[in-house]
Design a binder for these strands. Structure first.
Lengths: 193, 193
DNA sequence: ATAGAATCGGAGAGCTTTCTCCGTTTGTCG
DNA sequence: CGACAAACGGAGAAAGCTCTCCGATTCTAT
């Protein structure tokens, strides 16, 4: 599930080139301007007529998904790979900081993770759920070994992740020296009484 | 600098009543829907023609400022009142949590504090600067008595405040039990090694 | 080289949003 | 009460957005 429905005939050479260029430009535009950028503006920056871009991606959302979905899937895959790591605390905090690190330099990723309860994906998608579930597994393991406060839920951690994104992005814009994600991670650590 | 230019003649009785009603409805609409709500929608909810609302507030921004400016000024005043409190750590964390507490139930306040580097105020306003300066003073005092990590700047604290807003608002929406602001505050505390 | 299919370009339909304009209605004061 | 300024209402201008449509153009297979 990703490209076209069923077995489509191969694209004409120029069309494939153009499609790649659109994806490239859209990726840059989304990273710098976020989800609010207009479809027309992306077409303009890519140097194509808007009709051409719509030929490749039937809606604005389809284009944005084509650019961003892979990034989120990657986060989920990373979390799964860490699900059996030796040091559960290290796994959780490392993954958490890694997501913040990558998303903080990409406005669209921030917008996507930030906005409201659900990620603005195709209704049928389970990705938002997968993401939350993957985070939840890392969290529980870290709590079992006493690395993270026991009273935090997966929802809490997800909200803190969103908060970190906002904070960290602000800090980057100012050239701040302190990793704000580290500050928040410290807050999540279990106190040693 | 507030109402009208110079000495305006008093409003007609019905006009004053209508103005109050618009402010009241706008306040509720902004709290629940945030800065993205449309001017037309506010007029509709108040039961007025859009022209009537524009008669009282020349632009959308003017209306929003009339509703929200006072709230921010209040935060600044609170910070100033705490600037000589005995327990500097308590003053800083208490103020920080208080701002989060109040802003978390008001979408527009969140939007305003969140969005980018500057608050979307009239260019000439010094309010954004006042807010940052007030926060900075509480922070420095708390750092002097060793209550807060010494490596945090005022900008860091402001960004963390923004992050808290996002996290806390998410938690409220889910009915979360943990005060996420407390988690972040714990992260800002100086470690006692 | 040429026919024919695939692709492109961009005008414009249809929507939302901010804000203006002016005919109509409503308070107020002598 | 009656006149007149003040206030109201909402149509619609202007701008921006998503998305469609179809004539013009470009590739490719023969």
């Amino acid at each position: 599930m990703g490209d076209d429905h069923g077995a489509a005939r191969p694209l004409r050479a120029d069309a494939r080139r153009n499609r790649e260029r659109v994806l490239q430009i859209a990726q840059e535009a989304l990273a710098s301007d976020g989800l609010t950028i207009s479809f027309d503006e992306i077409a303009r920056r890519a140097g194509f007529g808007v009709g051409t871009v719509y030929r490749h991606f039937p809606t604005k959302e389809a284009l944005f998904e084509a650019v961003l979905l892979g990034r989120i899937e990657r986060f989920v895959a990373d979390a799964r790979a860490l699900a059996t790591a030796e040091d559960a605390g290290r796994a959780f905090f490392g993954w958490f900081a890694g997501v913040v690190e990558q998303a903080a330099v990409n406005q669209a990723l921030c917008d996507m993770l930030d906005s409201g309860a659900a990620m603005p994906l195709r209704p049928g998608s389970t990705l938002a759920g997968d993401f939350a579930a993957a985070l939840g597994r890392l969290l529980v393991r870290a709590q079992r070994v006493g690395a993270v406060r026991a009273d935090l839920t997966a929802g809490d951690a997800l909200d803190l992740l969103r908060g970190c994104l906002v904070a960290e992005r602000g800090a980057r814009a100012r050239g701040g020296a302190v990793r704000l994600a580290d500050v928040v991670c410290d807050g999540m650590r279990a106190r040693s009484p």
